[in-house]
Design a protein around this nucleic acid. Sequence first.
DNA 1: ATGAAAGCGCTAACAA
DNA 2: TTGTTAGCGCTTTCAT
Lengths: 362, 362
Amino acid sequence: MSGAAARRPKVPKASNAVLTPLNSAATLTDRAGMREVAERAGVAMSSVSRVLSGHPDVSSAMRARVMAAVEALGYEPNMLAQMLRSGATHTVGFVVGDISNPLLAQIALGAEVRLRAAGYAMLLTNSVNEANLDATHIRLLQQRRVDGLLLSLSDETSDETLDALTRSMTPSVLVDRDLPLDEPFSAVLSDHASGIHQAVDRLVALGHDRIALVAGSPHVRPTRERINALEDALENHLGVVGQVRSGAFTEAHGKAATRELLAGRRPPTAIIAGGNQILVGVLDELGARKVRVPADISLVTCDDVPLAKFFTPTLAMINRDPYEIGLAAAGLLLDQLSGHPPETVILPTTFVTAASCGRPPR
Amino acid sequence: MSGAAARRPKVPKASNAVLTPLNSAATLTDRAGMREVAERAGVAMSSVSRVLSGHPDVSSAMRARVMAAVEALGYEPNMLAQMLRSGATHTVGFVVGDISNPLLAQIALGAEVRLRAAGYAMLLTNSVNEANLDATHIRLLQQRRVDGLLLSLSDETSDETLDALTRSMTPSVLVDRDLPLDEPFSAVLSDHASGIHQAVDRLVALGHDRIALVAGSPHVRPTRERINALEDALENHLGVVGQVRSGAFTEAHGKAATRELLAGRRPPTAIIAGGNQILVGVLDELGARKVRVPADISLVTCDDVPLAKFFTPTLAMINRDPYEIGLAAAGLLLDQLSGHPPETVILPTTFVTAASCGRPPR
DNA sequence: ATGAAAGCGCTAACAA
DNA sequence: TTGTTAGCGCTTTCAT
């Protein structure tokens, strides 16, 4: 009985509009479904589905009939239904520390372009550099059933984050991050060491003997890599001292660290600023104290920023190509989604010297 | 017969694993569904649904039973199913010209923060300032059934875009754009006129009599507003001439327009750059020709950019608060989604003078 | 206050 | 090659 009732009546929707009780959001009455297309073409829904999904076993006659009906009705498939049924959302989540950072904005751009070309859309969440938001956003994206994740985490060490990541093994690509996990993630890493080495070599050649690194959060890879690289580099240059101040990727930290360094017994002759925001703080403090660049101190910054090239003095920089990083990250994710094993790609950094690097004062 | 078969057997999933033929993506066997929760709690699925959705008519006993089962199983609702069933995706699309523009990055940040606070996620698409991509992205987002759209279009005049927008009336908020449509969109607009007026007044007071505006694409509101405002402002200052060069929001246009202006019979004594990229071009050309700011020419730019404050000379700017614009746009969209009628909000711009504005050369 | 049942629109196993 | 059918996991009438 109830079984018989379950059999779907073959009457067109319009004629039993009364029986369509569902949500009033059915205001979209004009949107044709696959059922209508099948009816109009006089074929089964499965055939319509086959035609639309490019299944090999379809006669050209069938294809023609179906396509005609599709055209006539202006049919567009409902992606939600497809997602629910197939389990694939063709959506990836990007957990980014701060999209207003031009570096990450470029990365996001590259990633989105590559993903869209492959039919994927990108959900973006900003953790505004708060570690606890990383985990929240990962879970949120997982609830939305993203197929994969691009991770530029604010903090690699958060247990909550690691937990969210291991619990449901969403295919993920780390963007310049290292995770203390066995799970095999793909990763796009920057070769910070190379840039730092080049910068240090240049500074030492100019005669500098106290090089300070004002770095960002020690909980992310770039900071650790830069610190290690500095120490490494100095082993080749006996007599040259390194001073490291890590903290946060903020203007405030840049400023405070610079103040400390300058107030110290033996202030640095050169400073490397580990990021845009930090650079602002460094410049601010230098300006406030009337410390001249490069006459009194030399300056190198990490990661280009718009308009930097018009600075006086022009800024020496350790650069990388963020758009390329985005492309690569998206590429690795797409690879993984099509079955490839996780992979790590290392992209270069390059040091470009400029007027902000000069001989140290006597 | 077939009807009887349709009756869903009440056997637990595990016991008839053989009967679960669907996609092999059923690797997620450990994910409990609402059915399991209902069984474990010994209640109907509808009751579970009611408890979880905060329906008023639920006894506390029921709530307790259900919540216990939810906890025990670590149940998490499947948003895809909810979306399909309810028709609401709690997702909004942001069609942005170029996320690598710091202005838009800030707007996106503000919007995302506000949206997420309301339980919405944001799909981001970059049109990389190509008009034809606007329409493509709008359709793409509509196919994904976004509940609403945030539009920072690359070109307001594209028929394809207008068509995509009118065809399926997705609630939308225009971000500093004007559309030639009857459809009622919400909008967050910037009061460019006020900033331009203040800048012009200042320049005229300094003695300038030829003020050029190197503007971006004439197909978007900010450009038109600035041009109109300049002409307006000059009506109050007889004898002061305006020169407008609109084109594109690119460095190339900024450079070319500046060259033209400087090569003209009567070059401007002051230039207003209509955006970050344009500013780069202007500065580049000025530098190449050894035109000094402000000694030879005065300069004003629109929209702040990181590090601008360290420029020499410091740059006079017409500013606005992009984060606030993002918040407002998201707010208007959320309002619309909860039934409010479309609305327009106008946010201020402010002129901040600086060393780049000086007296014109004699 | 609770339960039974009917789908949302689609895909894919199975049969024919 | 095509059709039949059983769901994906949830919400929401409707009846009790």
